[in-house]
């Protein structure tokens, strides 16, 4: 910028700028080099643990050290690709998170419509309550939820856990969905109304198709959150055959203490893959900070 300002002025000035110890351009180039180096250093520290996991999963060494494997092997994957270790926990995760996400998304869409379209005295208090509950630490409710589930016999029940997961994701889901729905112009709806469509028809046929990106964001966000959730299934599910992958990573770590890090890394890799893919899909589709920006701006 500074350079651009100087060009139209006389040669005397240009001479003076040339005698300065470091011209702004060179200084900014040096600055950029420094910035790049700092960011590269940060990236390296960030990547080390990830690199270790990737190497450990295909290594024969079974060590905590970050070390290039002597031979690359798929033994670790062979050892874990069976029903008990991988397939069942993954299927359980898929059931819990799939149905949980479905419930959250459908219920949020329904709830978002009146919140976005109708004016009422109850609207603001309701929205404030929703926003307030997005911030509540779910961890803290888990012990009362456990006592409650014991009393109504829902402990160790997959549907019960699914419903709880759905309910705990609901405040954020409703909030996001309402913001996306606000972006759909009401004019289009009025045309459909004049043609005699009722509110639900308008919602499913007119509004939803127009906010497909928003629904995608909420779906993927909700699913990623549930897929990684450890505490809820850890507390509410007991039988080993019902546990999702998040809990089995943990039991794997405590059961095979000190020994099977290659296998555990292989399993962690497989377990992380779906959410990483979903996130890539999301950012490819909508551009990095977009989803989050929408969530925070209100």
């Amino acid at each position: 910028m500074a350079v651009a300002v100087e060009t139209p002025t006389g040669s005397a000035r240009r001479d003076r700028s040339a005698t300065r110890p470091a011209s702004p351009r060179r200084r900014s180039r040096l600055g950029r080099l420094g910035v790049n180096l700092v960011l590269l250093a940060v990236s390296v520290t960030y990547v080390l643990p990830l690199l270790w996991m990737a190497l450990a999963s295909v290594s024969n060494l079974n060590t905590f050290r970050l070390k290039w494997p002597d031979t690359f092997t798929l033994d670790n994957f062979d050892a874990i690709l069976n029903v008990d270790t991988t397939y069942r926990p993954m299927l359980n995760s898929l059931l819990l998170c799939g149905f949980g996400t479905l419930i959250t998304v459908v219920v949020s869409i329904l709830a978002a419509y009146p919140l976005s379209r109708y004016r009422s005295r109850l609207r603001r208090p309701f929205l404030y309550t929703i926003l307030f509950s997005t911030g509540l630490p779910i961890t803290a409710v888990m012990i009362p939820v456990y006592s409650m589930f014991v009393q109504v016999n829902l402990i160790d029940s997959m549907p019960g856990t699914t419903l709880f997961l759905a309910a705990s994701a609901l405040p954020f889901g409703i909030w996001l969905m309402k913001n996306f729905m606000d972006g759909v112009p009401i004019v289009l709806e009025e045309a459909a109304r004049i043609d005699g469509a009722n509110a639900m028809q308008v919602l499913w046929r007119v509004v939803l198709p127009l906010m497909r990106p928003g629904v995608t964001v909420v779906t993927i966000f909700t699913f990623i959150g549930m897929w990684g959730n450890f505490f809820v299934p850890f507390i509410l599910l007991l039988s080993p055959e019902k546990l999702p992958a998040s809990v089995s990573v943990f039991t794997f770590l405590s059961a095979h203490d000190q020994t099977q890090y290659g296998q555990l890394s292989a399993f962690s890799l497989l377990y992380s893959l779906p959410v990483v893919m979903l996130y890539l899909l999301l950012s490819r589709k909508l551009g990095g900070g977009f989803a989050l920006g929408g969530a925070l701006k209100g």
């Binding site: 960011l39 990236s43 960030y46 643990p49 990830l50 990684g228 450890f230 990573v249 377990y271």
Partner: peptide
């Protein structure tokens, strides 16, 4: 690159992150 690796650590499930940090 920076954006990618920093977000990768965030997207990983909590327990996997815990395991990697333990290691």
């Amino acid at each position: 690159l920076t954006n990618g690796v920093v977000i990768a650590a965030w997207v990983l499930p909590e327990v996997v992150a815990g395991y990697l940090m333990y290691a």
